[in-house]
Design a protein around this nucleic acid. Structure first.
Lengths: 242, 242
DNA sequence: GTGCACTTGCTTGCATACAAGTTGACGTCT
DNA sequence: AGACGTCAACTTGTATGCAAGCAAGTGCAC
């Protein structure tokens, strides 16, 4: 345990992961993609054995994937019963967007407090993200780029804890996007709004960036289709199940 | 993130949990307690086999516990190497307290927006928590009551997503408290400040509750001993290990 | 003495076997 | 017919065995 600092700093063992990802990672990616692509829908019941058979692996790595997905809010494991796909409703969408607004506005304020130069540099980095966004066309790619944009924005505040919280939040955001059936249909609007925010930061107008960001999140909520009747119980449209 | 609540609350299916909790839960509780009580300290290296042998169970449930603890930020598992206890430093303490301030102030504002009656009721419930706090004397009990107080405060905002985020945050807070070696020495001050906040809410002075809360969090940071020199590298005081 | 391949002892990753719990259906008794 | 007990087909929970990976130490060749 003398070289623990090395362990903490250097991630040089990851070369093996590129050659042959662990079975647990494959299971995680498979289930997550199936969830995000609508193969599994709200209320579906999954079992470790079924997924393991589908992937040709044993239950052990699938079990690990289930736990990770439960921690990220995608699944809910019931003892001795199975795992159900957690349904999302307007309540959740409102909650996530409210939380995102809170964290992202905080990030902008913290960024502005770090000085004009930091604001400009962050805006520049975000603009580069937007350029990539305009090129990427696949749904999965658009998802990933949206994640990098917003996570970079929050990360620019310099608070690692808040950044970690936001990553958790983003998982739920992706679940909402998937459930909204809108998917990447509004990707163009997203990119345009991202670019506007990045430009405002790059030109050192943080106050306008705040306003643009708030508008952006409101627009995202509206486009998701969950904006109406926030008090509606989430179970309204998810009663049917296998 | 809320699987702990699930385990504690969702006992309606199986009566076995009262007699014999799952081995994975025992392993989780054992490691977590050891972490919080200082048996394991920052940088320590744990292996599944060792813990399994200590508890007289197999590696499988220990493995599950490791994953949960990693998700909560206590451990970091390195492939084929083992799990190290994540060290915490002033940077983390500042980040956590800043995030807590952000979320808890948001909660107070959201609570105030829900109306005077909601504010009074929440203050009343919090006062009841404080009464329990004054009775409980064991360190573990004090920890748990502090958790219920702050989680109830944040939960009163009515945003389940933010509440979930805050629970995640609280795990890190507990780790910081443990690392600060201050532990429950300042429990009396905590309780007094909690009571002041609850009273302000009960008497419908939310603005003062805001101020008291900010003071409380600043005091917590100060008492933790991590308040000075936030840029200091985290390894400063954590070199010694068993 | 120096450098390098090998060996050894640790670790995790995965597959498999078995134990235990839950559910729903089926048959039987009243 | 209706209620009730039994059971069979699922599920997860845990233990165990084996393969593979990583790091340090050992000994040999130079």
């Amino acid at each position: 345990m003398h070289q623990l600092a090395d362990i903490l700093c250097g991630m040089r063992h990851n070369a093996c992961m590129t050659i042959q990802p662990k079975a647990a990672d494959r299971a995680y990616a498979h289930i997550r993609d199936s969830l995000l692509d609508g193969v599994y829908t709200s209320g579906d019941l999954l079992s470790e054995g079924t997924v393991a058979a589908d992937l040709g692996i044993s239950r052990t790595p699938v079990r690990e994937a289930f736990q990770r997905l439960q921690n990220e809010g995608f699944l809910r494991v019931y003892p001795k019963r199975g795992a159900v796909v957690v349904p999302v409703g307007p309540e959740d969408a409102h909650g996530v967007l409210q939380a995102r607004l809170l964290l992202e506005l905080f990030a902008l304020d913290a960024l502005a407090a770090r000085g004009a130069e930091a604001v400009r540099e962050t805006g520049e980095a975000l603009l580069r993200d937007c350029e990539q966004e305009q090129q990427g066309t696949t749904p999965a790619g658009a998802r990933e780029l949206g994640r990098t944009f917003h996570c970079r924005l929050v990360g620019s505040a310099g608070n690692q804890v808040v950044a970690g919280l936001y990553e958790t939040l983003w998982n739920q955001q992706e679940r909402i996007s998937a459930a909204a059936t809108a998917g990447p249909a509004h990707a163009a609007e997203d990119v345009a709004e991202h670019a506007a925010i990045a430009t405002a930061l790059h030109e050192q107008r943080p106050a306008e960036a705040r306003r643009l960001l708030a508008d952006h999140l409101a627009a995202v909520l509206h486009r998701s289709g969950f904006s109406g009747r926030p008090g509606l119980p989430p179970e309204a449209g998810t009663s049917a199940s296998a």
